[in-house]
Amino acid sequence: MFSRVYRAAITLPPLVWVALFLLVPYLLMFCYSFWSVSESGAIVHSWNLDNYRELLTKPVYWQTLLRSMWIAARVTFFSMLLGYPLAYFLSFYAGGRKDLYYQLVIIPLWVSYLVRAYAWKTILGTDGVLNTLLQYVHLTSHPLDFLLYSPFAVVLTLTHIYTPFTFLPIYASLEHIPRNLVEASHDLGATPAQTFWRVIFPLSIPGVLAGATFAFVLSLGDFLAPLLLGGPSGIMISNIVVSLFGAAYNWPLGAAISLCMLALVLALIFLSERLEKKWSFS
């Protein structure tokens, strides 16, 4: 009897928490997405598909969504490009310094997202560190203006922020590869490069998929980096949602966009998990 009470006592609080702050808001959002706003700004509780129709017919929404996906794809690509070699180096060649390097990768995660985003602002701005330097060494005669307030700035910042998120799962999957498999491959005549492509990389695919999902999903939904560094050309879908819930005061349309994104993200996570399972061997 005691154990039943005990079990209820430890499982109930998180359940209540999840229900109250996750499930209920989602449910509300789901309802809102089928409602509308009257001229006077009141929510009209009549069920219809107008919001979804508007999303499909007005190019600004799906174009922004496509641009967001394109930015997220680039962020994913570049974080992989940085995160994988880093994880590979740490796992296989860092030797006794492994823990130190690992901490060095993790520490940026402790720094506030805002601080990091603002840091890029000071680096990339017209009078920023980078432009000043470029002019100082006479590589450019006037400030480059594509650096800040552009999709470039957003991709750069998000890549910086999300690279540790791709690094971690890749590192974990590399650490799980039994080292005698690498030795066996060498023993059977494979050079280090052949061993990497035939043994190490295939066995790290679950980590790559998990890392890519992290980077893509997190950057797809990001609104701070485009807000601070994106400028008009770097607007992402979340910025539209934010303004719909704020200044524009159209919660139903905002909810509809959010639900579409949620569906997209869930589909991605589902797909990635299926693939991870297919590529994991224990």
Binding site: P178, N180, L181, E183, A184, S185, H186, D187, L188, G189, A190, T191, R198, V199, P202, L203, W279, F281, S282
Partner: peptide, 28 residues
């Protein structure tokens, strides 16, 4: 090791888990 005409049977076999038996044997 990859230039030696020496092969090893490892203590815990070290078979490649992502390959079939056939692919394992044909690896070298």
């Amino acid at each position: 090791p990859y230039r030696r005409r020496v092969n090893t049977v490892f203590q815990h076999y070290a078979l490649f888990p992502h390959m079939t038996v056939e692919q394992n044997v044909g690896y070298g």
